[in-house]
Design a protein around this nucleic acid. Structure first.
Length: 381
DNA sequence: CATTGAATAT
DNA sequence: AATATTCAAT
């Protein structure tokens, strides 16, 4: 479990030193937070754990731990997990729904402890971490999170209004969520008397009400993706199953996936070449052009020489670093083709196709290796 | 027929 | 920009 402990010992250092090393590592990785969100997570977690061990207390997740864990406040957490979560501005228009989960969470947390300390970003992070390990077979737990489905009436008016109170009740029969509110597992939608409708309003054509991808939902999505070995090898159905979210449909996931992929794939910025040679040309020689710190990292390791000119329409997919995650025993059941799948990285590595093929030895943990190296060109098989 | 990915539509 | 829906290929 605590692989880093081993590592530490192998490096013959004490916790303090190891922690330092880890932190250094994290700094390095941070640059690639977009490509290696998980790595960052891992390292961060490792650090946390070490610190905890240091301070003796082995509390759950460090709610108190920040005594020290603060320091590197940097801006890590944020971008890491969020990745492409729709940035929701509290006050801005955005969507009237969706916030529920986070509202709820933050609420709870606030109540339980007024430790507002470093923004809720952290709490989010923690939560996500929480969600990570458990699951495989777990599912049952939260299962019932039925994200709100945006109504989006023709209202048009500009919908500049905000319910300000998500605690569903009265007015909207909306089958808003009820994500495992501890007890009351009763799926029963509060609908007291009226509102028979429920869903499926006999209205035909009606475009489905938009599914709202709350952070929580998205997190689930990401988790699933993780288990499936990345966005490129995951398939909507599988994702949906792993997410195990009640009303979620394949199409919704599919759509979300599509967006995710698009957003994830290098946005090949404006094609305005020709004019202004200053900024244009460098582009894909050896496919190294580092653009928005995001999605970059791709080439790095592979990059090296060769190729260039490439007439190929070459959509060199950026793997978005996501190791299949050992996920010991995923809920398997129906998951047949976990990680390996298409991934069309045509051979741009010519001769040296070896390199990877390193399943057995998960040497990946060596913190000191850092950056690029194994940007996990996802299953390149 | 079911799933999927890309292209559209809203 | 974010979802939904349609289209074409499996």
């Amino acid at each position: 479990m605590y692989f880093f402990t081993e590592k530490m010992q192998s490096l013959k250092m004490g916790f303090p030193d190891y922690i330092q090393t880890l932190e250094e590592e994290r700094r390095k990785i941070q640059v690639f937070s977009k490509e290696l969100p998980l790595s960052l997570e891992l390292v961060t977690q490792a650090i946390e754990t070490c610190k905890q061990q240091l301070s003796g207390t082995t509390s759950e997740y460090n709610l108190n731990g920040h005594s020290e864990c603060s320091e590197q406040t940097t801006s890590t957490e944020g971008p890491v997990l969020e990745e492409f979560i729709p940035i929701k501005k509290r006050a801005s228009s955005s969507s009237p729904c969706c916030d529920e989960d986070d509202e709820q969470h933050s609420h709870k947390q606030r109540v339980s402890k007024e430790n507002n300390n470093s923004d809720k970003r952290k709490s989010d992070w923690l939560r996500s971490v929480q969600l990570w390990n458990p699951d495989p077979p777990a599912e049952e737990d939260v299962s019932k999170i039925v994200c709100g489905v945006e109504l989006k009436r023709s209202g048009s008016g500009g919908g500049a209004f905000q319910p300000l109170h998500k605690e569903e009740k009265s007015s909207k029969p909306s089958e808003s969520l009820s994500k495992t509110p501890s007890s009351t597992p009763v799926v029963a939608t509060s609908s007291s008397a009226v509102e028979p409708a429920e869903e499926k309003s006999l209205n035909e054509g009606q475009r489905k009400l938009r599914r709202c991808w709350s952070q929580d939902l998205h997190k689930r999505f990401l988790h699933a993706l993780q288990q499936l070995g990345g966005a490129d090898s995951a398939t909507p159905k599988q994702i949906r199953e792993l997410m195990n979210v009640d009303g979620l449909t394949n199409d919704e996931v599919k759509s979300h996936l599509q967006k995710y992929r698009l957003h994830t794939r290098r946005p090949i910025p404006m094609v305005h070449n020709s004019s202004d040679p200053q900024t244009a040309p460098f582009v894909l020689v050896g496919n190294i052009f580092v653009q928005s710190p995001e999605y970059a990292a791709v080439a790095t390791s592979t990059a090296s020489r060769e190729v260039a000119t490439v007439a190929a329409p070459a959509r060199i997919y950026a793997p978005v670093a996501t190791h299949p995650t050992p996920v010991s025993h995923p809920p398997d059941d129906s998951i047949k083709k976990p990680q390996f799948k298409k991934v069309k990285l045509f051979e741009l590595s010519n001769s040296d196709d070896r390199a990877n093929h390193s399943e057995g030895a998960v040497h990946s943990n060596s913190p000191t290796s850092s950056s690029s190296t194994h940007t996990s060109t996802s299953p390149g098989y």
